[in-house]
Nucleic acid binder design. Structure first.
Lengths: 215, 215
DNA sequence: CATTAAATGTCACTTAGTGACAGACTAATC
DNA sequence: GATTAGTCTGTCACTAAGTGACATTTAATG
């Protein structure tokens, strides 16, 4: 196993244990020592991987948003966002382990109102996701990634994704609302569509126009 | 002077000293003791007002966004956002002390790329601003403030404001770019317009239609 | 197997942040 | 004007968060 992958695994393992402790005892009543002990590493190792105990859950958020970004990066130029989601999003399209992590994320998001420390970790993760989205939108629309319009669009779309995530998580955990994957996908696609300031949700013209013959 | 106003003044004073220290020495090299000493209060008082040293600058962010929200709350229903900004936004429309605070905010925002700790405080402040914006939009459009569409719109608009603030601050501090108030206002209004998912930027029909006679 | 570089553990240390109590200030009440 | 009650502050002892330095282990590579 590659070195950096092992490192990422350690971080994820710490993140999972941190999340479970935060969920069961609250952030304030969980110490760094406990998180490290639960993960079976020295306390010093925890602080080597994370600047603060709250940020220890960030790898969970990051993993989710990275999987989402990976789907967007493979987005065929002739597909709408609804078609993309229908074919790629949901528990049927990922490993069971990833779904378990997603559930942890959902439970954490449901705690945001009571746990400001978690909110800060969540917002920082959204920020990372926003930077990925900048690249994705720039690539799909053939625009420079430094452009203001592109960054604006990435920010509004990220905000929409965040609101949907928070809303769905809160509804699921606090009100026991069962939503189907199709419903969540539709909800998410619609929110992104409304939020986007650039037309990247529909098929876009290919970078190189198809030709029947040679050059 | 009211009790809670005195409290807010203490917080603002601490925030200003914290901001100056963060700007001159960086966040990591500034201790809580130093911030408290600069403001002339006991260290314990600092921790009573703020959960962490980074969050000590939040009152500065909060004050700016509160002034902005106050302008939006007084927004006449027959005015466009451009007209509102032209008449209310800019250094001519506020106290010199407030403008000095705004300059501190701009300089802090210019440091976000190098100071992740500040970014977290900034994002948390934007979150508060977003909640104000929910009320403002709900009120202007005569919709319930709990509605998903309203919260979505507030989130995308807040994202737009955030991006403009960050962009303008970075351009001003790092590249010495001088932008006129009118330019910033136009930039901001346009970004908000593009980001908004609900039509609150233009005149809206008054809640009660004007009548010439009695009821 | 030897080498090397990165990850981890151990321990001493500084800084962040809290609990508890005592004193000071303010505002209302008599 | 004294009283009283409530909130804010300072002092001090304390726990928890987080770092620096150095030894040790681990895993990839030749």
């Amino acid at each position: 196993m590659s070195r950096s992958v092992a490192r990422e695994n350690t971080r994820l393992d710490l993140a999972r244990h941190a999340a479970r402790l935060f969920l069961s005892k609250g952030v304030a009543d969980t110490t760094g020592d406990e998180i490290a002990a639960a993960a079976g590493v020295a306390t010093r190792t925890l602080w080597r991987h994370f600047r603060s105990k709250e940020s220890a859950v960030e790898p969970l958020f990051a993993q989710s948003s990275l999987r989402f970004a990976a789907i967007l990066r493979r987005w065929p130029r002739n597909l709408s966002i609804e078609e993309l989601f229908a074919a790629n999003l949901g528990p049927d399209n990922q490993a069971a382990e990833d779904t378990a992590d997603d559930i942890l994320v959902v439970r954490l998001l449901a705690r945001l109102p009571e746990e400001p420390a978690l909110r800060s970790a969540w917002l920082m993760s959204c920020q990372i996701g926003e930077e990925h989205l900048i690249e994705i939108i720039a690539e799909r629309l053939d625009r420079p990634s430094g452009e203001f319009e592109v960054r604006l669009c990435a920010a509004t779309v990220t905000a929409a994704i965040r609101i949907v995530d928070e809303t769905v998580s809160l509804a699921a955990v606090k009100h026991g609302l069962k939503t189907t994957t199709a419903e969540v996908n539709a909800h998410l696609a619609q929110a992104i569509r409304r939020a986007s300031t650039l037309p990247f949700c529909d098929p876009v013209t290919p970078r190189i126009w198809p030709t029947s013959g040679g050059e």
